Simulated scan of single mutants.
Amino acid sequence: MKIGIIGSGEIGGSLARRLSKLGHQVSIANSRGPGSLADLAAETGARAVTVHEAARSGEIVFVAIPAFKIADLPKDLFDEVDADVAVVE
């Protein structure tokens, strides 16, 4: 399954580790950009992407950021995302 993760802290990182280990294709993003995720990507096999790419790269998208940071996400983040994509917050 293709899975997008927005957030690379304790929860997002743990999801990336576990889901990658289970064989899923994981794309992960954070507010600092793909370059800051090189170590996590190398460790997990996840693909480091932008937040827009993470939102559009999965059949499921996990938003694993603190609730007060959700307002800081781009307003168009889920534009053009298929209606069948499950978003888990």
Rank of each mutant, 00 (worst) to 15 (best):
L15I: 08
A16F: 00
R17K: 08
R17I: 00
R17S: 03
R17M: 02
R18F: 08
L19S: 00
S20P: 01
S20D: 06
K21A: 00
K21G: 03
K21E: 02
L22Y: 04
L22D: 02
L22P: 03
G23T: 05
G23P: 06
H24E: 00
S27W: 07
I28V: 15
A29K: 03
A29P: 09
N30Y: 06
G33Y: 14
G33E: 12
P34C: 03
P34Y: 10
G35C: 08
S36R: 13
S36M: 12
S36D: 13
L37W: 09
A41D: 12
A42G: 14
A42L: 15
A42S: 14
E43I: 08
E43T: 08
E43M: 10
E43F: 08
A46L: 09
R47I: 15
R47E: 15
V49I: 06
V49A: 02
V49K: 05
V49H: 01
V51G: 05
H52Y: 10
H52S: 07
E53S: 06
A54S: 12
R56P: 01
S57A: 15
S57C: 15
S57M: 10
G58L: 01
E59D: 15
V61I: 11
V63L: 09
A64Q: 09
I65V: 11
A67F: 11
A67R: 08
F68N: 12
K69Q: 11
K69E: 14
